[in-house]
């Protein structure tokens, strides 16, 4: 269709052309300076949704990594404590084996008893290990020392009993909560002074000490078996701790992979291909110059007035 050109129409057309080529240039130059092709949701609604989802995932994964890092130190503390505990148990076993020889006088046995008592005190110190201000063997009663010795000589567990919900959980991936603390009462046991009975390691050490004090050979020999059981209990808990640590290591490496993948996915979604954008920018600049030069020729040069 023939359109009769009009002077105002031509001027407006030239103006529109200049404006639209400038707008195109501006969009590209904004993209190249920000490095983003999606700066608001309407630029690409689908990508915007994915970017938000990926952002949330990445931040969640980094949160899991933080959790693991913080918890790992507590697990390390727990493991070294249990390792010291094993040495103490072995030391007590050595004393018990020595005493069971029946060649020692009561004076010597009394000296051994005081060594066993020292071992017991060390065990209690270990049981009250703190990490980051929290007693790690007290279950969820984290501000309560796991063991206290009262005036009567009772050694009672003050933490959450392993029969109750004693566990503290840490989240290491979606919906996966790992219990990180060991059951203190199972590892260490307790002692009741009134009935002179005890359970676990503390019970055994107390019985050993009492047997040594009384020169009770049968009691000393009996303690040997119990000590080996207690050592097994400590080793079992230590193994569990190590298992959690290795689970953390695996999870850490899989989270790192996931974060890397998600980051590169996000970059694909929102980052510009700089070389492509710069090439487009250059061609948009050429187009803009061409439009302007055409416009200036049309508006000033192409008029009959120049030839009259």
């Amino acid at each position: 269709m023939y359109i009769r050109p009009t002077t105002l129409g031509t001027t407006n057309l030239a103006l529109n052309d200049i404006l639209s080529s400038q707008a195109k240039y501006n969009t590209l130059s904004e993209q190249s300076s920000s490095g983003l092709k999606v700066s608001k949701p309407s630029d690409d609604p689908t990508a915007a949704k994915s970017i938000l989802d990926v952002n949330a995932s990445i931040s969640q994964l980094n949160g899991y990594l933080d959790n693991i890092n913080v918890t790992q130190t507590e697990l390390d503390t727990q493991e070294s404590t249990l390792s010291s505990l094993s040495s103490l148990i072995e030391k007590a076993s050595g004393l018990a084996t020595q005493a069971a020889n029946q060649t020692y006088s009561q004076t010597e046995l009394t000296a051994m008893k005081s060594q066993v008592d020292l071992v017991l005190n060390s065990v209690l110190d270990l049981a009250n290990t703190k990490y980051n201000g929290n007693y790690i063997f007290s279950g969820t009663n984290t501000s309560t020392p796991a063991y206290t010795v009262d005036v009567a000589g009772n050694i009672a567990y003050k933490g959450t009993a392993s029969t109750d919900s004693y566990q503290r959980y840490v989240q290491i991936s979606d919906g996966v909560f790992v219990p990180i603390n060991a059951p203190g009462d199972q590892v260490f046991g307790s002692y009741d002074a009134a009935t002179n009975t005890g359970t676990g390691l503390i019970g055994t050490l107390k019985a050993l000490s009492n047997a040594m004090g009384a020169g009770n050979n049968a009691g000393i020999s009996g303690s040997l078996d119990n000590l080996s059981n207690d050592l097994n209990t400590a080793l079992l808990v230590r193994t569990k701790t190590a298992a959690i640590s290795s689970k953390f290591e695996l999870t850490t490496s899989s989270i790192n992979t996931a974060v890397t993948n998600l980051t590169s996915y996000k970059s694909n979604l929102e980052d510009i291909d700089l070389s492509a954008v710069l090439a487009k920018l250059a061609s948009a600049q050429v187009a803009m110059q061409a439009t302007m030069s055409t416009a200036s020729k049309t508006l000033s040069g192409l008029s009959l007035l120049n030839y009259l």
Partner: peptide, 11 residues
């Protein structure tokens, strides 16, 4: 059960 000291509980 007395949970009054279980301030480390994070369930």
């Amino acid at each position: 059960v007395d949970y009054s000291n279980a301030i480390g509980n994070n369930s």
